[in-house]
Nucleic acid binder design. Structure first.
Lengths: 174, 174
DNA sequence: ATGGCCATGTAAGATGTTACATGATTTA
DNA sequence: TAAATCATGTAACATCTTACATGGCCAT
């Protein structure tokens, strides 16, 4: 069971009976670029989940298109709870993956006078991103779990920004 | 050009002429479970890079096996610098991907009495991980960039731990 | 000389991306 | 009614994982 499939189960569970398109939009609206939610990933994944009996579907009434409403089957609920429950994967599988750090690792490949520009631009883009997430966080008043998702993202990006300051200091010396 | 390919270019550039196996070990020794560095990914990726003229190779002397030593070609160096240089991708592509947060998002699916256990276990595993990274950080005295990689990982995991405390508080209420 | 690690690779299969195709519904 | 968006899907292609196969090197 891939992460994508697990998350689809979670999203279907969260948004009740909903269409595949609705699931796609949840991915598309995520600020993270990691979860692209392309049609070619979502529709086949949902078909797989239905074939395995983890999702059920029914035709959406009053819709001339072939839209279907999906919901979790009992087995799907169990699969979802099982994914969430201990034992969790090892720490290495839980730690954040940082696309910025992977690049900066090789920054010495750039001539010294260009290194600074990378840091400056990264800081800029992360600050912009941070602003939009903070905005979403403030706009979200009702759902405490969703607020937690926002604050998690905020803490993660702030950690990156703090780290960038450290990178800046270290590179200035050496 | 995938991330894996870019990182391989970076690693080959970093470790000078080196074998494919050496590249694999760099991935395997990374604390992050994200970069598995399986043979079936690395060897084909290196072949692709050589076909495209970004890597050059020569037979390793005095080795009865078919081991080859790879190094960056001039074009490979350019490709690597180009990857590192502005313009960077958008903020959404730079922000950290947090496998823990994706799970906790759906934690309400668990019965209330089991939610705490998830947090406790996650905290435990992340603390263990943090200890080992801190240890590597202290052991590494020479290379400032490598120390930066460690401190980036440390800041990231600490942010997760701080967030877990917040999750704990919020779930205790709601 | 044999067991364990070093080292290279391949095959089968699943998953994901991009791009395209199709048509319904809503909005200006 | 025209344009935008909703909605579902498929085809071609590349990539990644898992598992396996092969054989050299090294220490006891």
């Amino acid at each position: 069971m891939t992460d994508l499939e697990q998350i689809i189960l979670g999203v279907v569970g969260e948004y009740g009976p909903c269409t595949a398109y609705r699931v796609r939009r949840v991915f598309a609206e995520s600020p993270s670029g990691h979860w692209s939610g392309s049609a070619g990933a979502i529709y086949p994944a949902i078909s797989r989940l239905e074939r395995r009996g983890l999702l059920r579907s029914q035709k959406k009434a009053g819709d001339g298109r072939s839209a279907r409403l999906y919901r979790l089957s009992p087995g799907g609920g169990r699969a979802l709870r099982n994914w969430l429950s201990p034992p969790l994967p090892d720490g290495g599988q839980l730690m954040p993956i940082d696309p910025l750090r992977v690049r900066i690792r090789f920054i010495k490949r750039l001539p010294p006078e260009k290194r600074r520009a990378v840091i400056v631009e990264a800081r800029h883009k992360l600050r912009d991103l941070l602003r939009t997430i903070v905005q979403s966080h403030q706009d979200e008043r009702d759902d405490p779990v969703r607020r937690l998702m926002h604050s998690g993202a905020i803490l993660g990006v702030k950690a990156q920004l703090a780290w960038l300051d450290e990178v800046d200091r270290v590179l200035a010396i050496g």
